[in-house]
Amino acid sequence: QTVHVKGVQYHFPNPEEAVKFALKVAKDLGGRVEFHGDEIHVE
């Protein structure tokens, strides 16, 4: 599972961890989380 944050990719073997990370980052940055297939983008 890959999380993209402002052009940087973070790889997580566990999808659940990836989602938790993405939600935390989005909250910290005041952004939103978008799901694109296997990828999660924080915009």
Results as ranks from 00 to 15, higher is better:
residue 8 V to M: 11
residue 15 P to T: 14
residue 30 G to Q: 08
residue 25 V to Y: 06
residue 26 A to D: 01
residue 39 E to T: 10
residue 35 F to N: 04
residue 26 A to R: 02
residue 30 G to C: 06
residue 28 D to S: 11
residue 4 H to Y: 15
residue 38 D to T: 12
residue 39 E to A: 12
residue 11 H to D: 07
residue 3 V to F: 01
residue 17 E to T: 09
residue 32 R to L: 07
residue 43 E to R: 14
residue 10 Y to W: 07
residue 24 K to Q: 14
residue 29 L to T: 14
residue 40 I to S: 01
residue 14 N to Q: 05
residue 9 Q to Y: 11
residue 37 G to L: 07
residue 35 F to M: 09
residue 11 H to S: 09
residue 12 F to R: 00
residue 19 V to R: 11
residue 6 K to H: 14
residue 37 G to P: 04
residue 39 E to C: 06
residue 14 N to E: 06
residue 23 L to H: 13
residue 21 F to H: 03
residue 37 G to N: 09
residue 18 A to Q: 02
residue 18 A to M: 01
residue 33 V to H: 02
residue 24 K to S: 12
residue 9 Q to T: 14
residue 36 H to F: 11
residue 4 H to T: 13
residue 36 H to A: 08
residue 2 T to L: 07
residue 1 Q to K: 14
residue 20 K to C: 09
residue 34 E to Q: 11
residue 22 A to N: 00
residue 43 E to C: 11
residue 25 V to A: 10
residue 18 A to S: 03
residue 26 A to K: 02
residue 23 L to N: 13
residue 21 F to L: 02
residue 40 I to G: 01
residue 39 E to G: 14
residue 19 V to P: 01
residue 25 V to K: 07
residue 5 V to H: 06
residue 18 A to F: 02
residue 21 F to P: 01
residue 27 K to A: 14
residue 25 V to T: 09
residue 25 V to I: 13
residue 24 K to V: 08
residue 9 Q to S: 12
residue 18 A to W: 02
residue 31 G to P: 00
residue 11 H to A: 07
residue 6 K to F: 15
residue 6 K to I: 07
residue 16 E to W: 12
residue 31 G to I: 04
residue 32 R to N: 07
residue 3 V to T: 01
residue 16 E to H: 10
residue 10 Y to V: 04
residue 20 K to P: 02
residue 33 V to T: 03
residue 22 A to V: 02
residue 38 D to P: 08
residue 5 V to R: 02
residue 30 G to R: 07
residue 19 V to Q: 09
residue 40 I to N: 01
residue 37 G to A: 07
residue 37 G to I: 05
residue 27 K to V: 09
residue 40 I to M: 05
residue 16 E to A: 12
residue 42 V to E: 01
residue 17 E to R: 05
residue 35 F to Y: 12
residue 32 R to D: 04
residue 16 E to F: 11
residue 38 D to F: 10
residue 24 K to T: 11
residue 41 H to W: 14
residue 10 Y to F: 11
residue 4 H to A: 05
residue 4 H to E: 05
residue 25 V to R: 05
residue 15 P to F: 15
residue 10 Y to G: 00
residue 31 G to E: 03
residue 26 A to S: 06
residue 36 H to D: 08
residue 32 R to W: 15
residue 2 T to F: 07
residue 41 H to K: 07
residue 22 A to F: 02
residue 37 G to F: 06
residue 11 H to I: 09
residue 36 H to T: 07
residue 34 E to M: 13
residue 34 E to F: 14
residue 35 F to V: 08
residue 13 P to V: 12
residue 21 F to R: 00
residue 14 N to L: 06
residue 34 E to T: 15
residue 22 A to C: 03
residue 16 E to K: 09
residue 41 H to A: 04
residue 29 L to K: 05
residue 29 L to P: 01
residue 16 E to M: 11
residue 11 H to N: 09
residue 22 A to E: 01
residue 14 N to H: 06
residue 4 H to K: 09
residue 19 V to D: 03
residue 7 G to D: 07
residue 40 I to R: 01
residue 37 G to T: 05
residue 16 E to S: 10
residue 12 F to K: 00
residue 26 A to V: 05
residue 17 E to D: 12
residue 18 A to N: 00
residue 27 K to I: 10
residue 29 L to N: 07
residue 36 H to G: 04
residue 8 V to C: 09
residue 29 L to C: 07
residue 13 P to G: 10
residue 11 H to T: 10
residue 42 V to A: 01
residue 1 Q to V: 15
residue 36 H to R: 15
residue 16 E to L: 10
residue 38 D to K: 11
residue 1 Q to I: 15
residue 33 V to M: 07
residue 21 F to K: 01
residue 21 F to E: 02
residue 21 F to C: 03
residue 5 V to N: 03
residue 27 K to G: 10
residue 20 K to D: 09
residue 3 V to K: 00
residue 17 E to P: 02
residue 12 F to Q: 01
residue 34 E to Y: 14
residue 35 F to S: 04
residue 35 F to E: 03
residue 2 T to D: 04
residue 3 V to L: 02
residue 25 V to H: 05
residue 5 V to W: 09
residue 16 E to D: 11
residue 15 P to G: 10
residue 37 G to M: 06
residue 2 T to Y: 08
residue 29 L to F: 10
residue 37 G to Y: 06
residue 41 H to R: 11
residue 21 F to S: 02
residue 32 R to G: 04
residue 16 E to Q: 12
residue 34 E to V: 15
residue 24 K to H: 09
residue 29 L to M: 12
residue 42 V to I: 11
residue 32 R to A: 06
residue 34 E to R: 14
residue 4 H to N: 10
residue 30 G to V: 05
residue 3 V to M: 00
residue 10 Y to L: 04
residue 35 F to A: 04
residue 35 F to H: 06
residue 36 H to Y: 13
residue 38 D to L: 12
residue 41 H to G: 02
residue 26 A to L: 04
residue 42 V to N: 01
residue 43 E to M: 15
residue 32 R to F: 11
residue 20 K to G: 06
residue 17 E to Q: 10
residue 17 E to H: 06
residue 23 L to P: 01
residue 32 R to I: 11
residue 43 E to I: 15
residue 4 H to P: 01
residue 34 E to K: 12
residue 36 H to M: 10
residue 19 V to A: 07
residue 6 K to C: 11
residue 8 V to W: 08
residue 31 G to S: 05
residue 33 V to W: 04
residue 34 E to A: 12
residue 39 E to M: 09
residue 25 V to L: 13
residue 14 N to W: 05
residue 27 K to W: 10
residue 34 E to I: 15
residue 23 L to F: 14
residue 13 P to Y: 10
residue 21 F to T: 02
residue 28 D to H: 11
residue 9 Q to P: 10
residue 29 L to A: 05
residue 29 L to V: 09
residue 43 E to Y: 15
residue 30 G to H: 09
residue 43 E to S: 13
residue 37 G to E: 07
residue 17 E to V: 07
residue 25 V to N: 04
residue 17 E to I: 07
residue 5 V to Y: 10
residue 29 L to I: 14
residue 1 Q to R: 15
residue 15 P to W: 15
residue 18 A to Y: 00
residue 14 N to P: 00
residue 10 Y to S: 02
residue 37 G to Q: 07
residue 2 T to I: 13
residue 11 H to E: 07
residue 13 P to K: 13
residue 29 L to S: 10
residue 14 N to V: 06
residue 33 V to K: 00
residue 1 Q to F: 15
residue 5 V to D: 02
residue 18 A to G: 04
residue 43 E to T: 15
residue 7 G to V: 02
residue 43 E to H: 14
residue 15 P to E: 11
residue 27 K to S: 12
residue 4 H to M: 12
residue 4 H to W: 15
residue 31 G to N: 03
residue 15 P to Q: 14
residue 38 D to Y: 09
residue 21 F to I: 02
residue 12 F to C: 03
residue 10 Y to Q: 02
residue 39 E to S: 11
residue 37 G to S: 06
residue 10 Y to T: 03
residue 30 G to A: 08
residue 23 L to G: 05
residue 7 G to N: 07
